[in-house]
Amino acid sequence: MHPLLHNDGVTMKPLRLVVAINPTASFGKSSSVGPAVVQTLRAMGHDVTSLQEPDFEQLMESGRKAVSTRPDAFIVVGGDGMVSLAANLLAGTKVPLGIVPSGTGNDMARGLGIPHENTEAAIRMLTDLLQGPPRTIDAGRVEYVDDETGRASTRWFAGCLSAGFDAVVNERANRMRRPTGPSRYTIAIGLELLRLKPIPYRLVLDGQPLETSAMLVSVGNNVSLGGGMKVTPDAKVDDGALDVLVVQPLSRIQFLRIFPRVFKGTHLSDPRVAVHRVRTIRIESMVAVVYADGERIGPAPVDITVVPGALRIFAPA
């Protein structure tokens, strides 16, 4: 390939890129984003392979084959579910990730400073960042027993893991067909508040056991989940640690008072809220279900470890 000229006159290196498009984005307002990304990158002279499959399982398989060819970047078009797919394909490899957010929550993009409400701006940022080195961030590795196969399994997450009320809300929201967008989470919160009760846990934080009941247990590598709920507002994606949020049992009225503060990230000042910064955590519970980056892992127990520098990603430093 020959060098290309960027629109500001800078000489660019043509790259071999893979673009994976969310299978659920075939219809609606996001349907044009994937093709626009592919068209833009090809117009710039890059060698682009577009991955479009009818479901996530087939997209994962196509993505695995594409990553094995060691492209210059693996770009996902979609929300946090697509980031989850990419994290599980790319963690521990040298293939960097690019994100063009067009999903419901877009929490990973929010935390990384990628425009999450303006796809044109996100595409422009990506094309600029592709000409420089990617940054390196941490990822969480989850070890668990698959509740369908009974086999020991491993999953990765880049953003947040949920194992309390937030996971219950995720479970409800993922079953809802309407509405689309962040309001789906808000409605799911209201519905689950009617059944609100604390969950008993045994947590092991860097080897130290903690028996507790809690309303909310979240493990953050990133800041937010659910479309902007800043559950772990002080988390950093590159500090080699995970922030574990534990909210003590609250009455429904108390919970209703504190929960809106989660959207602003001001809930940490409440004495019933604790954050533990750790490298490893085990979550045990008879009833808790676990989600990571909005995708269902399954019932507890799970063992979580932060892996520093596991992912390379095109995002602002």
Score class of each variant (00 low, 15 high):
E148P: 08
T149K: 10
T149F: 02
G150V: 06
R151I: 07
R155S: 11
R155C: 06
R155E: 08
A158M: 05
A158R: 09
A158H: 04
L161Y: 11
L161H: 10
S162K: 07
S162T: 08
S162H: 06
S162R: 10
A163V: 04
A163S: 12
A163L: 03
G164R: 07
F165Y: 09
D166H: 05
R172F: 10
M176A: 11
R177A: 08
R178F: 14
G181S: 12
G181M: 10
P182N: 12
P182S: 08
S183Y: 09
Y185N: 15
T186Y: 15
A188T: 12
I189K: 08
G190H: 15
L191T: 07
L191D: 09
P198K: 05
P198F: 02
Y201K: 01
Y201G: 00
Y201L: 00
R202I: 11
L203P: 06
V204W: 03
L205K: 09
D206L: 04
P209C: 14
L210A: 10
E211W: 06
E211P: 00
T212I: 15
A214Y: 04
M215S: 03
L216A: 05
L216K: 01
V217Y: 04
S218D: 03
G220K: 11
N221R: 02
V223I: 13
V223C: 01
S224C: 09
G226I: 07
G226Q: 09
G226T: 09
G227S: 01
G227F: 06
G228A: 03
K230S: 02
V231I: 12
P233V: 10
A235Y: 13
K236C: 11
K236E: 02
K236A: 08
D238S: 13
D238P: 02
D238R: 00
G240L: 03
A241K: 12
A241G: 02
D243S: 07
V247Y: 00
L250W: 00
S251A: 05
S251D: 02
R252N: 06
I253V: 14
Q254V: 05
L256A: 14
I258A: 07
P260M: 00
V262Y: 05
K264S: 14
T266M: 13
S269K: 15
R272Y: 11
V273S: 08
V273D: 15
A274M: 15
T280M: 01
